[in-house]
Amino acid sequence: MAQLTFREAIARGIAQEMRRDESVLMIGEDIGAAGGVFKGTVGLFEEFGGIRVRDTPISEQAILGAAMGAAMTGLRPIAEIMFSDFFAVCWDIVVNEIAKSRYMTNGQMTFPLVIRSGNGGGLRFGAQHSQSVENWAMQVPGLKVVVPSNALDVIGLMAAAVRDPDPVIFLEAKALYATKMEVPDGEIVDTLGSAKVVRKGSSATIVTIGAMVPRSLAAAEELAAQGIDCTVVDVRSLIPLDTQTILREVSATGRLFTVEENPRVLGWGAEISSIVAEELFYDLDGPIVRITTPHIPLPAADALEDMAIPSVSRIVEEISRSMNG
């Protein structure tokens, strides 16, 4: 066992896979000797050298194009896009090239690659370095989308993503990089498409991901004091989506709350709400409520950013109001 931060878990997960498989390579801006702007790749350059852990120019299209070309010819690249907001400058490679090419070529090509990226707010970086883009990725047929919420899951899901034969967008909540937990020694491999029930309750079910998981858990503790006992489901991977676990946990309590960091319109919670509404309508005891960031670009000031992103108190308030309404 070792205390590990979320950011250290990223390097550990990658190192675990690079040791196992020589075809795993890592590229990105400042990821080599510098260890990444979020220090997510510290130690990799020293262990695996500059050929396997390679710094790139500020060329996001080239980074992802290179990952795609390498994946289609037998390697398993991991590419870093420093901030997920920057996907906007290379989204063509993700959406039109990587995601569509297997289908278009009738299965002639596979793309076993991982694109990792710092995602979301909480760091007061302002609108161009803070957005949660998991719903962008989720909307694209052909992409798998993983959003871990703790160090242990980071390692296991990174391993699963690297071993997966399909392209995986791996979104790391920047707000969680410094969080710590006990992590067992030895190889850790998880599975994509498996949600985790991280708290079991009887009154309502909160479905959430990433940085909103610890907030939802804290909110659940406060709600318990009010007599509202919540189940919390950490979805972990949006595609593939573990609908079975979500449906089971929502039908057990009869209520669904989604807690989402993304701006409201077409956030991933809307898709889950729609699945639940279609398949579980008669088991519901009240309306589905989505707790999200409003449909605004994120402001920089700490006071404003804290108002925008769902906070523990807002989650408590909205759930309590709805449950008592």
């Binding site: 990952a67 795609m68 010819t73 390697l75 690249p77 490679i93 090239e97 070529t105 090509m109």
Partner: peptide
């Protein structure tokens, strides 16, 4: 290794295949 219809997209992808061959 493909014909690409978004102007310019395949130049970086060709780099990737070349990088792979180099590695």
């Amino acid at each position: 290794m493909g014909s690409y219809a978004i102007i310019g997209a395949h130049l970086p992808i060709a780099c990737g295949a070349a990088w792979s061959a180099q590695y």
